[in-house]
Design a protein around this nucleic acid. Structure first.
Length: 397
RNA sequence: CGGGGUGUAAUUCAUCGGUAGAAUGCUCGGUUCGGGACCGAGAUGUAGAGAGUUCAAUUCUCUCCACCCCGACCA
């Protein structure tokens, strides 16, 4: 992608209303623009990051046998009335058509996926079944905050599964938890599996995937000896119940994912039955857009963002000086390397500052000084090397 | 929804009871080109909205709106 032909621009100063790091940097570096409180446009760079995160999530969900679909954002009110959500969920956005029919925006998709699954689950042979999609969610939060970390509209992967009995459910639940840990690991994050209440969703314990960060909203306690972690808004405990010798430490964290045992609540609401038995259902969410915000919170320095390689919008940021770089850009592109090419006539200093701000993991420079070599520098290092094009391509593949 | 803060150009800000300013950005021309370089020229505004006071309001008063922060909320 050519810098000069793309609709993003970096700002010398972040907008003054931005206080949270992810808000500041994502706007300043040209990844997002705010439309209103809690609602953002993702510009080409930001959109690419969302797609990268989505793709990793997609691969891991596919790997545990879930099938990807795409369900609507606009829902008929009756589905929500059937489960009681229409009256009990205060964050549900409701709207009315010209003909005075009531609709809801997708706060979540249990109300849509359960009737869908009912059509495909006709016998015990059809179980277990797992379906997921990546779709926008709408929640009428009283107060949006922290940039893209708590929006009223946000991108989420939500998966749903149905099982003949509790044992089978528990097996898949465990598998899903492991898949989640793989996802977060690939995103460069350390997510703690955290015990929490299931809200009004379920009376059972649910698990949240929490990433330690001051900009998060969750208050957790984690054990310094084992992997035990609990949401202290939900529970009151003072010693580690898992390993006994560990001390519980307080921390703030951001919830990037969660898994729930929904029991038979939705199966019953929509009369989804197999041989007279209501299947056990689970739901599993990952906040794609929030995770993007959390990654910026975790990976930045005084100069800008430092994207993990796995979700960087581009593999390399090619800086052309003295009008050079065109040939290298074409060759890299032909070798399937994702390149952001700064082909503008801005000063060298401004180009470098932009490269640091945008945070692509590898910066390449082609100038009079580099001759027939290419300068190679990683965003999180000061080491500068001069390499042949072949060596550059080899490193990037 | 309670409390606090802020609304003037794309961004950051100044100004002031007498009808709009700077820096950055943008456009054009030129010099540059290794850390936001320089010279010259130019375009850019319903001063958040409405009402009131006044000869005159961006400025004072009131109401509303928007955004940010704290809290509540976040099945």
């Amino acid at each position: 992608m050519r810098y000069s032909q793309t609709i993003f621009k970096t700002l010398k100063q972040a907008p003054k209303e931005a206080e949270t790091v992810n808000h500041k940097l994502l706007v300043q570096a040209g990844f997002v623009r705010q439309l209103m409180a809690g609602v953002y446009t993702y510009l080409p760079l930001g959109h690419r990051v969302l797609n990268k995160i989505s793709q990793i999530v997609r691969e891991e969900m596919d790997a545990i046998g879930s099938q990807e679909v795409l369900m609507p954002m606009l829902h008929p009110a009756e589905n929500w009335k059937k489960t009681g959500g229409w009256d009990s969920i205060d964050v549900l956005f409701k709207l009315q058509s010209r003909t005075k029919k009531d609709y809801a925006l997708s706060q979540s998709h249990e109300e849509v996926v359960t009737p869908l699954a009912k059509e495909f689950i006709n016998s015990a042979k059809d179980l277990p079944l797992s379906i997921y999609h990546i779709q926008w969610k709408f929640r009428d939060e009283l107060r949006s905050k922290s940039g893209i970390m708590r929006g009223r509209e946000f991108l989420m992967k939500d998966m749903y599964s149905w099982h003949l009995n509790q044992e089978d459910f528990d097996k898949y639940y465990q598998k899903a938890k492991e898949a989640y840990l793989k996802v977060f690991k690939r995103l460069g994050l350390v997510a703690k599996v955290t015990e929490a209440s299931g809200g009004s969703f379920t009376e059972k314990v649910s698990y949240e995937f929490e990433v330690l960060t001051d900009s998060g909203e969750a208050n957790i306690m984690y054990c310094d000896k084992c992997d035990y972690c609990v949401n202290i808004d939900d529970f009151k405990k003072d010693s580690c119940p898992k390993c006994a010798e560990g001390l519980l430490r307080k921390a703030t964290a951001a919830e990037v994912g969660n898994v729930f045992d929904l029991g038979q609540k939705y199966s019953k609401a929509f009369d989804l039955k197999v041989d007279g038995v209501y299947p056990i259902m689970g739901c599993y969410g990952i906040g794609i857009s929030r995770t993007m915000g959390v990654i910026v919170e975790k990976f930045h320095d005084a100069k800008g963002i430092v994207w993990p390689k796995s979700i960087s919008p581009f593999a390399v940021h090619l800086v052309g000086l003295n009008g050079l770089g065109e040939e290298v850009y074409k060759k890299l592109t032909a070798s399937d390397v994702e390149v952001l090419f700064d082909d503008t006539d801005k000063s060298a200093g401004e180009k470098f500052a932009n490269a640091d701000l945008i945070g692509i993991p590898v910066r390449l420079v082609v100038s009079e000084k580099t001759g027939d070599k290419i300068e190679y520098k990683e965003r999180n290092s000061d080491k500068i090397e001069f390499l042949d094009l072949e060596e550059v391509i080899r490193r990037l593949n």
